[in-house]
């Protein structure tokens, strides 16, 4: 999941050649043709009440030209609920949700992308996988984050690219070319902060197995853990259609 959250929040387009090179390299190193993992979501609200959910995630394609299916497996009340995402290079993604109890799929409208993703601290927009070319960026300097030296960059959506965020600050580890922190702003207010941890090299791709998303306004937190993570697994295009979503396969 971090593979498509990171670029969504921080994908950067060039205004300074160094910054562009950094982001392009990070994107290149993270590239894979497909991805599979089983995830656990722990949502802690402002009163420290915790709700946990599990799901399976499959992606085919990469950066701005990919399709993904996210299917919840637990708890029982949400088992079978699925989300199909078609990411496009030139426009916002298409998203559909499948509700097995009423056997209906619904399209998530573009206007709704800024709303929270099913009670987590992610928004639907955060689930989109965007090409780095969708943003402009500039290098702000270097900082040490949790013991690792990082580049600090600022990204802004390019004109004509819709986003709920007006700008984001991004920290990229110099040794791994991996994102370690993102702070997203709406106008001048910080609204969301993401921290990446438990880095592991899976088939040559450094991947954070733990993501902590904080909704600064709501003072709530979502912790996401990735298990059974694998890249370049054999997946069929036919598994990423509305028909497949309805079939539950």
């Amino acid at each position: 999941m971090n593979r498509w959250i990171i670029p969504a929040l921080a994908a950067i387009a060039a205004t300074a050649q160094d910054a562009r090179q950094i982001v392009d390299e990070a994107q290149k190193r993270a590239r894979s043709n497909s991805q599979h993992y089983e995830g656990t979501l722990q949502v802690l609200d402002g009163k420290n009440r915790m709700a946990e959910k599990r799901w399976q995630y499959d992606r085919i394609g990469a950066f701005g030209d990919s399709k993904a299916v996210l299917r919840f497996t637990a708890p029982a009340e949400v088992k079978g609920v699925a989300l199909l995402i078609h990411n496009h290079k030139d426009r916002a993604s298409d998203q559909w949700m499948w509700t097995p109890a009423i056997q209906r799929d619904r399209r998530i409208a573009l206007q709704d992308r800024s709303t929270r993703f099913f009670g987590t601290d992610f928004s639907f927009e955060d689930l989109e996988e965007r090409d780095s070319a969708h943003h402009d960026y500039k290098l702000l300097g270097e900082e040490t984050v949790e013991g690792a030296v990082c580049w600090k960059l600022e990204s802004q959506p390019r004109p004509g690219r819709s986003s709920q965020y007006t700008r984001s600050l991004v920290w990229i580890r110099k040794d791994l070319y991996a994102f370690v922190r993102v702070e997203a702003f709406r106008k001048d207010a910080l609204v969301r902060r993401i921290r990446y941890g438990d880095f592991e090299n899976v088939k040559g791709i450094w991947t954070a197995r733990t993501l902590e998303v904080e909704d600064v306004t709501r003072k709530s937190k979502t912790v996401m853990k990735l298990d059974k993570l694998d890249y370049n697994v054999p997946l069929s295009e036919s598994g990423f259609t509305l028909q497949a979503l309805r079939r539950g396969s």
Partner: peptide, 10 residues
């Protein structure tokens, strides 16, 4: 309390 449960259960 849980928007996903709200949507998942008719």
């Amino acid at each position: 309390e849980d928007p996903l449960v709200f949507l998942a259960q008719p």
